[in-house]
């Protein structure tokens, strides 16, 4: 059974078919690439899965359970976390608080202890946050406001925050945007480490060095429809994909 299954998933914004009868099955433990030209519906797909925008038609199933139209906090509770194309952090909170609340929301939500639930969380949660700061290489910045971090640090914090909720499926919306090559390689390593640890990842990305290297399978969207799906090497050779990216005017230009 696939961990994530989209069945004829459709989203219309007025007359625009942002996502059009999309079928997709992501297997447990794989890194699945979702690529396509700008405006092809990749981010909308992520938003549909997370319950941020309402579904026009179709179905989203996570671990066999129907989560179509669930509120975002329920999708997260089910085990799906995400990052954003434009970095979204709580800039007025410290780095430590950003992670602490994300962690808390899972660990202590069901705690019977009033003080734990509403006020200071448990010691175990605090230790876990410190560990995650270490993993993200942000231990030295724990008391800094998130708004004051450098760009790369903000990306790392966003990923750490998504991981703090202990998801089984991670949706990454263009995590390499704006990164230099060195940072892309570091990200590549991090994603492989997460896969080793058993995480399933859906990677929406334009940076082909990352996508082609790290993913197990890729689906290509264009105008909200899936135009190709397969192994990275096959996708690179696919004529429909090349046409979607480079445009259809190549032959006419020769004629």
């Amino acid at each position: 059974m696939p961990i994530l299954e989209l069945t004829t998933l459709t989203k219309h914004f007025g007359g625009v078919h942002a996502v059009d009868e999309l079928d997709l099955a992501v297997e447990e433990g794989e890194i699945f690439g979702l690529i396509g030209p700008n405006g092809s519906g990749k981010s909308t797909t992520v938003n549909l899965i997370c319950g941020v925008v309402s579904v026009t038609a179709g179905r989203v199933a996570f671990e066999g359970r129907d989560i179509t139209g669930s509120a975002p906090h329920r999708v997260l509770a089910a085990g799906v976390a995400r990052t954003f194309q434009n970095i979204r952090l709580f800039g007025h909170l410290t780095v430590w608080q950003n992670l602490w609340v994300a962690q808390n929301s899972v660990e202590d939500r069901r705690s019977e202890n009033f003080a734990k639930r509403w006020f200071f969380g448990s010691g175990a949660t605090r230790d876990a946050v410190d560990q995650q700061l270490e993993f993200a290489g942000l231990a030295g910045k724990r008391n800094e406001l998130a708004a004051n971090l450098a760009f790369g640090e903000q990306r790392r914090l966003e990923l750490a925050r998504a991981l703090a909720t202990k998801p089984r499926l991670l949706l990454l919306d263009e995590p390499a945007a704006g990164m230099n090559l060195e940072e892309v390689h570091a990200l590549d390593g991090r994603l492989r480490a997460l896969q080793q640890a058993g995480m399933t990842i859906v990677l929406v990305e334009h940076v082909m060095e990352l996508v082609m290297g790290v993913t197990d399978r890729i689906a290509v969207l264009n105008f909200g429809r899936k135009i190709a799906e397969g192994l990275p090497a096959a996708i690179q050779e696919d004529p429909a994909v090349q046409q979607a990216y480079l445009g259809g005017g190549v032959e006419t230009a020769h004629a």
Binding site: C50, V52, A71, P72, H73, L76, A77, R82, R88, F90, G91, H92, L93, V101, A102, S105, V106, R109, R161, T165
Partner: peptide, 11 residues
């Protein structure tokens, strides 16, 4: 700061 993002933290 960001109610939608807060919602997506599971709150």
């Amino acid at each position: 700061e960001d109610p939608m993002l807060t919602e997506m933290q599971g709150l």
